[in-house]
Write a protein that binds this DNA or RNA. Structure first.
Lengths: 151, 151
DNA sequence: ATCGCTGCAAAAATTTTGCAGGTAA
DNA sequence: TTACCTGCAAAATTTTTGCAGCGAT
């Protein structure tokens, strides 16, 4: 979708909040970080560090810088890490007011991804936590199957 | 626990089924594979390939052999692969008659693991599959929290 | 005697780290 | 100016692969 007046101002607002969060922690808004956030914003699905690297103008920043940036952004709660079972971590931008908690339905043939908002009842998690004396329990849940095109 | 009469015969029965499955596929029962199966049988929790390697008598087999064996055993449905989010795959033996589907509650401090049999209602999965036109949908679910000892 | 399997070694893939210099604030 | 950050290069991890010889059936 092309950026028209409304979405443009929306983006600027989002940007300012994100960079503001960085500034609060005495972190710097550098060109690699701005580029990473921009790429994550443009892609609705989890990206590997190599995906992000490939999406950049050639030589715009080093792959190691992306790894370092993702650690920082993850610690700050600005991105969420996902694991699809192949050997590479994937990251998604966490929207404002959003805790980033959602799941994915992944095609095991073409690797296509659908975002899933639905989750199981939280009582199940509470019960499991209580039954085992665990605190601060969260979960990771991903679905795998064959998408319509690949069937 | 030492093997007494009953558990010994039980083990032999289990062993014969496992090795039988191997034989059916024209695969060979070698000493590394027997050792791997024995270690998996003795450990109730998912093990990394390095864990398995470390649990062996020194030099009993090569690490590459373990990687190759785990691929084979996974293809044959004899072990199940789990992913706890650190960069290493983990494997558990699948019991007979068991499809191996269960989950884990993992302590993020000490990495302790509790097996969880409980799962969410399967209608949730069916609904997600149907809503997106996916077939053969499965899921991976792991819980993370702080165990009683680490709190 | 096959054909599969293993050890060894090298390579591939992902991620981390040290360091000297550069840059946002 | 002063931390923080980056690029480059090297290293650490995890996993895969080629090949010659060994071993289960």
């Amino acid at each position: 979708m092309k950026a028209h007046a409304h979405s443009h101002s929306h983006q600027r607002q989002k940007m300012s909040v994100l960079t503001g969060r960085l500034r609060q922690q005495a972190r710097k808004i550098t060109s690699p970080r701005a580029a990473i956030l921009e790429i994550l914003r443009q892609h609705p699905h989890p990206l590997t560090n190599k995906d992000i690297f490939a999406a950049m103008a050639k030589g715009q920043c080093d792959l190691a810088t992306i790894y370092r940036a993702m650690h920082l952004l993850e610690e700050m709660g600005m991105v969420k890490r996902f694991d699809f079972g192949d050997g590479a971590a994937r990251f998604e931008l966490v929207g404002e007011g959003d805790d980033g908690h959602h799941h994915h339905l992944i095609c095991t043939r073409c690797a296509g991804v659908v975002e899933i908002e639905e989750c199981f009842p939280s009582q199940i998690e509470s019960r499991i936590a209580a039954a085992n004396g665990f605190k601060s329990v969260t979960h990771k849940l991903e679905f795998f199957g064959i998408c319509p095109e690949c069937q």
